[in-house]
Design a protein around this nucleic acid. Structure first.
Lengths: 272, 272
DNA sequence: TAAGATTTGTTCGTATGTATC
DNA sequence: GGATACATACGAACAAATCTT
């Protein structure tokens, strides 16, 4: 394995390639603690070496020797990287730390923490969905495999018949949000997929934790389901204009429905 | 101060309100380490208590007593929370840990880590900008204060005259991206603002670290600047349609320009 | 199944650094 | 400038997990 860019001195010169925070803030920054600096050094090293997810990182003992710091300091540094999803650690022989791909779920959670103190409204989320999802639908028309279309059909089975109570209604709403999340995965734009998936996650959490979607409404159920059926049909036949238009109607209906429920949002942290 | 939901037992029952990871994964999850569990407990507690940024958290000594764990374990837990931007720590008398608002910059950085291993292209970013920025521009028409408009004018001074070399060209491009980032702040949709700001940040980093925008081109410079001038005029006069249309042209031009430069992207980590 | 080896996880005591009064 | 109240850092020992034989 290539060696860390450290060879005796306690604080190796960090590579400049990955600036940490905007230059302006470098003046007022109070000087970072050792674990933070170690974490940065390791991160830079991973980038320099071009390591990929699954690749092995030096063990605790080796890091202690390289950085000339105590075990506790090194461990805190690794915790920082773990908290960000950048490394994973296993005990036992063959164990150790490994480069970890930041999972989509973790990225969602980290981002949700940011919005915890912003006051986001449901209207904000739907304004964005209305901008993005119809475009996505249009871009996907005629480009889905039969397997993907079948998966969407499968998800829709969760709400093939109207819900009978609030609990069922919520479960169906969560399933229908999964429909949108999956759809966003099928596109080839990872950024768009992430944004749409994140919004679906927010709305799912709201539904589950804040007990939104309490009132079963058979008429709305039918209209929402019809939208998605029409959407699948348009996607299958390759009719981009129809896909866009159906999705737009669907979003508007969902927005109106949601806005009736609650205005204020986002009272939660995501942990780990 | 209200008390932590811990009073003797080592691992207090965590509140259910903030699920950590999707339920499905709860089966295969290997059982989390103590620092992680402590971090989760503290997070839950902050949520339960409704603490706000700046509010004080219990000191190390108190946490040690409450959780009945060693100093090292507690410290690792705090590092986890720090790494996610949720708490800030100060030494000295009156120091300690405080609830911290996750900064926009940190949220950008954490999210950028996710995309480090995704292969995002410049085209992906611009496809989204093209969807979002014209809408934002339209929504802002006639709704900006004179001070906000003046700030945009001020930013534009950075590229009042054509750049003479690559370095200057990059600096101007960064400034023009700041124009977009600021504009997104002026809207009242925090989600939209974040997304647009994130994309501007990605493009800024590309410009700075990957030395993109190397070729000064006076014609493009003039057209880009004209777009922004027209945009400000439309925003000031309250002409939403014009604002949308100008922004759309601007995005398309910028996209074509950028795509000439490079196709593959996103080879960086963000630290701290 | 059991024992041993390897690697991270956790503890405790002590000492140091830093900001406030 | 000294006392005080915090976090920060170190080092040695022990515990737990997990792979190999």
């Amino acid at each position: 394995m290539a060696r860390l860019p450290v060879s005796g001195q306690a604080y190796p010169g960090l590579s400049r390639m990955t600036a940490v925070t905007p230059p302006e803030s470098s003046a007022r920054r109070p000087r970072r603690s050792r674990p933070v600096r170690v974490a940065e050094a390791i991160k830079d090293w991973v980038v320099e070496q071009g390591l990929r997810p699954g690749d092995r990182l030096p063990g605790e003992a080796e890091l202690i020797a390289r950085f000339q710091m105590s075990k506790g300091t090194i461990r805190e540094a690794m915790r920082i990287l773990q908290a960000q999803g950048l490394v994973e650690t296993k005990t036992g022989p063959g164990g150790g730390s490994f480069v970890g791909e930041v999972s989509r779920e973790r990225a969602h959670a980290l981002l949700a923490n940011y919005f915890y103190f912003q006051n986001l409204t449901i209207a904000d989320v739907y304004a964005l969905r209305l901008s993005l999802e119809p475009e996505l639908a249009a871009s996907l028309a005629g480009r889905l495999t039969e397997a993907q279309l079948a998966e969407l059909d499968e998800i829709m089975k969760a709400y093939a018949v109207p819900a009978e109570d609030s609990e069922g209604e919520r479960a169906q709403h969560v399933a229908s949000l999964r429909f949108h999340a999956r759809l966003s995965d099928f596109g080839d734009n990872a950024l768009l997929g992430f944004f749409i998936g994140f919004m679906a996650q927010i709305l799912t959490d709201l539904t589950v934790y804040k007990r939104l979607y309490a009132a079963p409404n058979h008429d709305l159920w039918r209209r929402g389901r019809d939208h998605q059926l029409q959407l699948i049909a348009a996607l299958r036949s390759g009719d981009a204009a129809a896909a866009r238009q159906v999705m737009e109607s669907h979003m508007k209906m969902a927005r109106d429905l949601m806005e009736d429920q609650e205005a204020e949002v986002m009272k939660r942290f995501i942990a780990e």
